[in-house]
Design a protein around this nucleic acid. Structure first.
Lengths: 210, 210
DNA sequence: ATTTATCAGTAACATTGGTTACACACACAA
DNA sequence: TTGTGTGTGTAACCAATGTTACTGATAAAT
């Protein structure tokens, strides 16, 4: 755990904070698809991502989903932080996008370290900043872009996070994360294939040049 | 200034913090319609809202607007906080919705107080929490609701913030804040009038029963 | 080998929302 | 009074997206 922690956070956290984290943090490894947080859950700890990626999803009353953003190495979940403080329930669902390693910090430490460590404060503020900006980007995309643009961005981002040019999802799954319908996504994907940007296969999509 | 500060923040801030704020804060009164922050601005201070309301807007490349949320008494601008730290430019536009009183805090104090005052830390975290949640609600509305629902919510929220049952805006202005078109909004408003939920007039709308 | 479930392709159609165009009413200034 | 600008109502049309229905292909299960 110590090596992974130093790799991901060694530059920004001072040694005494690293030691504190080692004292109280618990290391976890979760496989792709593992559900870390469900909507309505009470949060018991704050995750520090060491490797992998977590997708954060929103859901409406009818159960329709929408992908908000991905958390990656060096990120933490802002929602979690605020939920801890107010003892409120989670507003989002969090699912490992790939095999992921993370360190869980008990929430009581968060407040303590905020007073004690400048680097921790900066980390927390930066984290909020990043999450707010990602949320704004997602919002822009929904408010201002058409579905074809959103789909292209989705494929690009997914390829980046998974670090390969193959998207291993069905059209149905993509439609859900974009809050659209399977037929619409199939239609738009077919158009992308016709202009040689992707190659369609059963259960996966190969990205050629997006 | 001292009385207004105590009214809005006296319960959550300890006296020594109140005194610090009085030392370095500057009191400002701005009229409805006054533009406090433009997209791309570098932020010089952090606003504590004493009374009134500020609307926060997002804009896309083509200059189309979208209302994100309102800041009210006791709120502060999370975007501002994060912009200060990173010395980055503002991602949003902020305009006084009504006549508004606020106290501006120099940004350097923010970091200092975060270490010094527990109540300030809580305030900052709660503020982030609230803004994140409001952003999520806005996002839900755009992603999951149809324009007619969004319009109803817009009218309700506007009436609440302005504290009267009259919306003093043209259809054009409403269309802009919802990122729609004037004709669409006129159409939907007319439907609302036909079912006796509102009354339409030139330059204003009277809310009957939403 | 046969059945069954899942996935993708496609057509026809419905709905929502955006666009264009024009009429008319009102306010205000010359 | 007569223009002139602005705000609203409305019709006709269009584009994007969603829905329904059906097809065939592939994979998995029996």
């Amino acid at each position: 755990m110590i090596q992974e922690l130093k790799n991901s956070y060694g530059r920004q956290f001072e040694n005494s904070l690293i030691n504190d984290i080692l004292q109280v943090g618990t290391f976890r490894e979760v496989p792709a698809g593992y559900k870390l947080i469900e909507i309505g859950d009470y949060i018991k700890g704050m995750p520090l991502l060491v490797s992998g990626a977590i997708k954060v999803l929103r859901e409406d009353k009818e159960g329709d989903e929408l992908l908000l953003y991905y958390l990656e190495q060096g990120d933490t979940c802002s929602m979690t932080m605020t939920c801890c403080i107010g003892q409120t329930q989670s507003e989002i669902r969090a699912i490992a996008e790939v095999d992921t390693k993370l360190i869980m910090i008990p929430i009581r430490k968060m407040e303590e370290w905020t007073a004690k460590y400048k680097s921790w404060r900066n980390f927390v503020f930066e984290s909020y900043h990043n999450r707010l900006n990602e949320l704004l980007i997602t919002l822009d995309s929904i408010a201002f872009d058409r579905m074809d643009e959103r789909l292209v961005n989705y494929l690009k981002e997914k390829a980046r996070v998974n670090n390969e040019q193959i998207i291993r999802n069905t059209h149905q799954e993509i439609a859900q994360e974009l809050h659209s319908s399977r037929v619409v996504i199939s239609r738009l994907l077919k158009k992308l294939e016709q202009i040689d940007k992707i190659e369609l296969h059963r259960n996966y999509i190969k990205i050629l040049d997006l």
